[in-house]
Design a protein around this nucleic acid. Sequence first.
DNA 1: AAGTTACTCAACCGCAGACGA
DNA 2: TTCGTCTGCGGTTGAGTAACT
Length: 260
Amino acid sequence: MGRSPCCSKEGLNRGAWTAVEDKMLAAYISGHGEGNWRSLPRRAGLKRCGKSCRLRWLNYLRPGIKRGNISNDEEDLIIRLHNLLGNRWSLIAGRLPGRTDNEIKNYWNTTLVKKIRAQRSCPPFKHKTMSKARVTTSALEQQATQPPGQAQATTNPCQTIQTQASRCTKVIVDAPPPPPQNLKQSIELTKLANTHSSSNVPNCSGKQNQLINSCNLTTNYVHFEEFNDPTLESWMESSFLGKNINLDMDSLTLLLEEWA
DNA sequence: AAGTTACTCAACCGCAGACGA
DNA sequence: TTCGTCTGCGGTTGAGTAACT
């Protein structure tokens, strides 16, 4: 049934890494660089599988890793990013320098889930995701049939976007026209704003900051209609039959990358 | 002090996309 | 286009430790 586990081969070490193994791995990678994990253990003289080496390096040995003591700012950012992205730990980790996806995932599952549940005093919640690689206009239209604001109103406050263990590298849309350039700028600015605790983004004009502030970044969705821009409205109308659309930030970002 | 329970987090697992032959 | 391999991801496990009885 499927491929056999890579660590099940006889003669390979499993479990906790020793200091000697760490040293060997770090020495090899500092001399030869990352990559080719499959053959790395053999070349480095380690009795480990490639996966294990990769994980050890990325989560523990890699230079610049911060360990423990997640600050209040980081915690706040994790919560906000999780609201936007769901359980996409690698994406979340990408916005927290020095933190690994594994650490954030653990922190979320052990600490934040309990905190958030205590704050909201509501039961655990699981639901389907829409962020799996393919988003079609029919999916968008399905979302669009919700009157503005209703998606928020009917949403469980504990709801987050849960994803399966799959990479999401592109979004395919059935040939709508490209968005106006200022939409792209808006999204980039919104993404930038997400990485700042302050609502004012450096090096942005007052108008741009006004635009950013018009998005409610603490909710699951950015509302297009709140951009209040005639060019955007016209594009939205021509692309999606004039319906209001709530699209989660990550899918939107991927959508724009596909168009770019 | 000893036993039990709860918690943390490093490591493993299986899946799925990317990529080259 | 198909197939096999590599890589990266999120979910889950379990050993070690702390807190509690």
